[in-house]
Design a protein around this nucleic acid. Structure first.
Lengths: 115, 115
DNA sequence: TAGCTTGTTCGATGTTCGACGAACAACGAA
DNA sequence: TTCGTTGTTCGTCGAACATCGAACAAGCTA
């Protein structure tokens, strides 16, 4: 987090992004972020240990799919939609369309009461 | 080959297809097949051992990205563009556009003399 | 039948991945 | 300062992956 590496737009790697988006859990996370809203780490609910969730968020961040912002002791995550669209036009849109139709990552949701 | 399993269109899995398309070598193969032309196995040139190439073609086939046809002792490969577009509209197009722009898999090419 | 070509399969090896719990670091609050 | 919250990192595990060379199977061809 502190040393969070966010690749620049020019550094995005297509294979890395594809790999990041090939896991159902991570696709679910991307679907949650698809509306552009910034979400708090704690809002994210997935049926895995928090260390595992942290791992997946790191994979997405390292691939340049998401951006993590730290504020005090908590983190906020956003989808780098614009950067991705710039480098890989239509890719995220196609993925989201297919994922929605298939229900991929449907077991990832937001906390009932965001606090 | 003989026991080649080709998933039906309805059986295509988005995460599996994404995973199949997350390797530069496999992306390169898909780029070669992108024009819809059926290619002979022997036409494909990649800087890996033939057992490795066989493995990658199998991954693509198992994910439903390509179709392999056997004719006598040799194989012919095609991209299942239509099936993929039906299930995951725009995905392959976006991938190909990005891969072309980035030059991903550019070390995969066709044999100089196709015969 | 014997040999050649073509591509798959079989180990073997080293790497990466996904998962977990435990320990840790950073920060805000008491 | 002490405590609780929040999320990362570490160590570990088994499974999956990429790669190779060698062995193999299937089909032509001589």
């Amino acid at each position: 987090m502190r040393n969070a590496h966010h690749p620049a737009t020019e550094e995005l790697s297509l294979p890395d992004v594809m790999a990041a988006l090939s896991d159902p859990l991570r696709i679910g996370l991307v679907r949650l972020l698809a509306d552009g809203t910034e979400r708090g780490w704690g809002e994210l609910r997935a049926p895995v240990a928090k260390s595992t969730l942290s791992h997946h968020l790191r994979v997405l961040r390292d691939a340049g799919v998401t951006r993590t912002r730290q504020e005090g002791t908590r983190c906020f995550v956003t989808l780098r939609r614009q950067d991705l669209d710039e480098r890989f036009p239509g890719l995220v849109g196609a993925l989201l369309g297919a994922a929605d139709a298939e229900g991929v990552g449907g077991d990832i949701h937001l906390a009932p009461a965001p606090h």
